[in-house]
């Protein structure tokens, strides 16, 4: 009985600094500074719909690229000799421990007009190409910064697949490719789902990558929110309602994904 009370300080903390702030976001989104209920701020979000569409699109693109690049890598890693495996994984994950500002900054210096890529291309008479301050650069930055979050869950889920299950698939007439499609893929679905979540959520809400690699012209939802709170156009009500819409979008997409997950299970059964 008494021991349960030990959770109380934590619960109070989470209530005051997690739940209450989120309620305040909702409050600011629906009430003006005089405390009157209004839908104005939420309606105002509509005028930024192009930014929302762009954010979802670029984040989705980056997520898909991360998935496509990581899946074979995780598969190869999981099949490696266990002795090398942990070292290899460490090497793959290591860049994640560098601050992402620095990692993004690295691409700034690489992609610039006087950057090393354009300089090298110049030697063979090509370019210079405008690479920095494009949507492509933003997607590249997202992929680079968040790909470890895709590799890790995929790798984890794949190492948990029982080897005898793969052998059983072979025994029952599957070649490597069929085994991959019919056995490995469905079994790694939970890893795919959490990888998608872990990449998509930071990607859709970033404002650093778009600012550093996208220049001023490729604003994302994150930039929009940041501008309402710390930028020139201080407007916490609008910022709160944008945040709220962002959360709703993420929630919707995640629910949709889970739906797909469940349906897929049924098909498999």
């Amino acid at each position: 009985m008494k021991q349960k009370l030990l959770a109380a300080p934590y619960l109070v903390w989470m209530a005051v600094f997690v739940i209450v702030p989120l309620i305040m976001v909702a409050y600011f989104a629906f009430f003006d500074s005089d405390g009157n209920f209004t839908l104005q701020y939420v309606a105002d979000v509509a005028q930024y719909s192009n930014i929302f569409v762009r954010s979802v699109w670029l984040a989705a693109l980056a997520t898909v690229i991360c998935l496509v690049l990581s899946y074979p890598l995780a598969y190869i890693l999981a099949k490696m000799d266990t002795k090398v495996q942990s070292t290899m994984l460490m090497i793959v994950i290591l860049p994640m421990w560098m601050n992402f500002l620095l990692r993004t900054y690295a691409w700034m210096t690489l992609l610039g007009n006087e950057g090393i890529i354009n300089t090298l291309l110049g030697y063979i008479g090509l370019g210079p190409f405008k690479m920095l301050n494009t949507q492509g650069a933003v997607v590249l930055g997202m992929v680079y910064d968040y790909i470890p979050y895709m590799i890790l869950p995929l790798y984890t889920v794949m190492t948990k697949i029982d080897k005898s299950v793969l052998e059983a698939a072979n025994d029952l007439g599957c070649n490597s490719f069929k085994t991959l499609i019919k056995v490995v893929l469905p079994l790694s679905l939970p890893g795919i789902m959490s990888g998608i979540t872990m990449v998509f959520v930071p990607a859709i809400s970033t404002f650093i990558i778009s600012r550093m690699l996208g220049g001023g012209s490729n604003l994302l939802i994150g930039d929009l929110i940041e501008m309402q709170f710390l930028g020139n156009s201080y407007n916490p009500n609008l910022g709160a309602s944008i945040s709220l819409v962002l959360m709703v979008i993420i929630l919707l997409i995640m629910t949709l994904m889970n739906q797909f997950d469940v349906d897929d299970d049924r098909v498999l059964m």
Binding site: S205, F229, S243, I250
Partner: peptide, 14 residues
């Protein structure tokens, strides 16, 4: 699970 920016601005509001 929440985007970090939402955690940031919600705490800022508080």
């Amino acid at each position: 699970m929440n985007p970090e920016i939402v955690t940031g601005v919600s705490l800022m509001l508080l």
